[in-house]
């Protein structure tokens, strides 16, 4: 905007909002592609993925085919609070059956990654990440009765019994996007 002498520029907020909104919405599909769903645009909405998806079967709102459609028309806000992507079991039936190599699983997980950027991440996922960082195991138990019961050493030969390996894993995690986002405390 041109500044004329002595007069502050007039900013048309409605115009800016419209423009921002357009860019913002355009970005949804671009971000999904950037976050791993490289072949998103090949989707022709045939529905093969939905026919085989466990989430669609039990009534989740934004299962693969429907999520892809929503992304392609630029929806975002409506999707951010939805739990569907976090319920995806990553079974990859959809990837196997898709006739256009869209890999709907990648779309589901790219959606998770987009939600993480917006801090729309479930508490359970945070706990898993924290446990991974602290112990090297997303699922971790301090009780070792089960291992003793079946005649095994109390500690598995993992980061659980190898301090150097645990530090190595932490170094790796500190050099990933997880650290950039600051989702969990990392010493």
């Amino acid at each position: 905007m041109e500044i004329t002498e002595g007069v502050p520029p007039v900013i048309n907020l409605t115009e800016v909002a419209e423009r921002e909104k357009e860019e913002f919405e355009k970005k949804v599909s671009e971000l999904i592609i950037e976050f791993g769903a490289e072949n998103l645009l090949a989707c022709m909405q045939c529905g093969a993925c939905a026919s085989i998806c466990p989430l669609a079967r039990v009534g989740f709102e934004w299962y693969n085919k429907k999520l892809i459609k929503a992304i392609l028309i630029g929806m975002k806000e409506e999707l951010l609070d939805d739990p569907t992507p976090w319920a995806c079991v990553a079974c990859n039936r959809c990837t196997e059956i898709c006739p256009r190599q869209v890999a709907p699983f990648e779309v589901m997980f790219a959606m998770r990654r987009l939600m993480v950027e917006e801090f729309a991440i479930p508490t359970l996922a945070i706990e898993g990440l924290r446990s991974l960082y602290e112990h090297g195991h997303a699922v971790y138990m301090t009780g070792r009765e089960a291992r003793k019961k079946v005649g095994l050493p109390e500690n598995p030969p993992s980061t659980d019994s190898d301090e150097k390996a645990l530090q190595d894993l932490r170094t790796i995690l500190k050099n990933t996007k997880l650290a950039e986002l600051g989702l969990i405390p990392m010493e």
């Binding site: 990553a90 991974l132 390996a165 790796i172 990933t176 996007k177």
Partner: peptide, 29 residues
């Protein structure tokens, strides 16, 4: 072989949900 020092694979709800390079890095170790 015990693969001493192994960790979580990483499982789906952790690093794979954050970004692909991080997922691959933990798996690669």
């Amino acid at each position: 072989d015990d693969l001493v020092g192994q960790s979580c694979c990483p499982t789906w709800g952790t690093v794979p949900s954050i970004d692909i390079v991080g997922w691959c890095a933990v798996a690669a170790r």
